[in-house]
Design a protein around this nucleic acid. Structure first.
Length: 207
DNA sequence: ATTGAGATTATT
DNA sequence: ATAATCTCAATC
């Protein structure tokens, strides 16, 4: 009999200890979750390759009364279905015919809120992310912008409904604390169609 | 069956 | 400023 180490994947085990728990996403205040996700890290593992980075920009989408949200006026379709599910799940959608965007669904089952992840500071799998983005070297745009970061991490509709604590998609608490002084709050990007709700201070950026 | 517009990005 | 590009949902 050959002996074997107690765990096959120690590094992964270590990651798992800090994975953000379901309870974090169940917070009834989606704005708090959006702020709280700043400084945490988003990862994918595809074909054994881990890519990811620190979340530095988010937006809150407040649900059926938010004119900017896909679920405004109780719109419930195949596309938006996961937003009505429990928190801690990925809501992915395809936009402008070419970009995938990723949200963390928040709140409890039946209440459709989500946080759009808009930018990362790249930390893991830089080479792979550059390849996916068609770049020869890391630059400022590698994972800045919701479409760009999804492309860099290989996120597609395959990840629709994926739990955010799964083996191929997860968010980790890196213990980073964001001081209020380093937090910028602005209206959301690209939601001019939302009338007065376009003015809500629901975008959060680490300076 | 058709159509219009979108939580964007890279380039002109 | 604008082309690229396609899915979905609303409308006819």
């Amino acid at each position: 009999m050959v002996s074997r180490p107690p765990t096959l994947d120690c590094s992964r085990q270590k990651e798992k200890e800090k994975i953000v728990p379901r309870s974090f996403y169940e917070n009834p205040d989606v704005v708090k979750v959006a702020k709280g996700l700043l400084g945490k890290s988003l990862f994918t593992r595809i074909e054994g390759i881990i890519t990811g980075g620190i979340i530095i920009e988010t937006e809150a989408y407040a649900g059926v009364n938010d004119k900017a949200s896909h679920v405004y006026n109780n719109r419930r379709t195949k596309r938006t279905e996961v937003m009505y599910g429990p928190g801690g799940i990925a809501y992915i959608y395809f936009c402008y015919g070419m970009h995938h965007l990723i949200n963390a669904v928040t709140n409890v089952e039946g209440i459709a809120q989500a946080v759009l992840i808009r930018a990362l500071h790249p930390t893991h799998g830089l080479k792979t992310m550059c390849e996916r983005r068609g770049k020869t070297k890391v630059d400022k745009t590698l994972t800045s912008g919701p479409g760009s970061l999804c492309k860099a991490l290989g996120i597609t509709m395959e990840f629709y409904g994926e739990p955010l604590d799964s083996s191929r998609l997860w968010i980790k608490d890196s213990g980073l604390v964001v001081p209020d002084g380093n937090l910028l709050t602005t209206p959301r990007i690209g939601v001019d169609y939302a009338g007065d709700d376009a003015l809500l201070p629901y975008r959060f950026v680490i300076l």
